[in-house]
Write a protein that binds this DNA or RNA. Structure first.
Lengths: 156, 156
DNA sequence: CAGAATGGTGCAATTTTATTGCAACGGCGC
DNA sequence: GCGCCGTTGCAATAAAATTGCACCATTCTG
């Protein structure tokens, strides 16, 4: 799995740069890491084919694209079997407002991250996910007051 | 803030496509949304300048880049004032293993998302963040067993 | 140790893409 | 109707990506 061993300092530098800004041209990146454009390009292409770089995506400004309200919900299931867990997660991940869904250890069984347009969407979501027939014993809602850090990049 | 009103169907289509794969060429995108390359390019440039597109980044495969272990930690502070909250968050966000940090409502005050190389890193992190002098009353660790969904894209 | 094999590099030629000027088109208010 | 504004497509230009090639360093092998 880990391909860190096959990577040198320049690969790591490239990955760090591209995690910050992947819109830079190959020529630009090559200049910064001190390689020729062709050589730099071969590295980035190799990093993509090997899967170290999963994909290149556009990150939107949530405030300018709607869905401003964020919340975390810790869910405790009634039935704790593997199949019950999977069933609940399958339902949860189909919801557009659910951006993250994790099975976790501890007091609760599942943690969901929500991105909501408004509280009405929260209300209707709760009705769909946390009703009697969905195997939910209890759930604890944590509205996110402030986002101090939200970092998808992996430091290398 | 919300600039959704000024966007038409093609803008939304472009944003959805670019959130999935921003490595596609402008020519390719133009073809898919049914515009000429020049016109399509002007749209994507406008979306970037207006800030709807915050940035273009490379997403790495965590398993192939280290930091395989993920955990959520709910933290309850001793002192709940605004300045105490800020002080704790300021310390937390400087930690590389802390990928997300939120101030939240509910039983606890702060939720952290951790990305760890190994449990030793978790141990040392706890010593730095959750000691007496860091204003932490209690903390609840939830190791992430399974990631059912992890979506940064915003559906439009 | 010599020679081959492997992998990475820079250069230069070629192909592809991005960028820009320009005229035309459509909606809208006056 | 007429002009205004923003958007479009086309074509020319500039920039970037891609590829073939020869060269160099390291490692493997006999």
């Amino acid at each position: 799995m880990g391909m860190l061993g096959k990577m040198d300092r320049i690969d790591r530098k490239l990955l760090n740069l591209m995690q910050r800004d992947a819109s830079r041209t190959n020529v630009d990146l090559a200049d910064e890491v001190g390689l020729s454009p062709s050589s730099c390009l071969r590295r980035t292409q190799r990093l993509q084919k090997s899967g170290v770089i999963d994909r290149i995506v556009a990150i939107l400004n949530p405030a300018k694209a709607g869905r401003v309200i964020k919340a975390l919900v810790a869910v405790e299931l009634k039935l704790h079997g593997e199949q019950h867990m999977r069933r609940f997660l399958d339902i949860a991940i189909t919801e557009e407002a659910v951006s993250h869904a994790y099975a976790v250890t501890g007091e609760t069984d599942v943690v969901l991250m929500l991105r909501l347009r408004d509280m009405e969407e929260f209300d209707s979501l709760c009705e769909r996910l946390f009703r009697d027939q969905t195997n939910v014993a209890r759930f604890f809602t944590m509205m996110i007051i402030r986002t101090a850090k939200e970092e998808t990049a992996i430091r290398l």
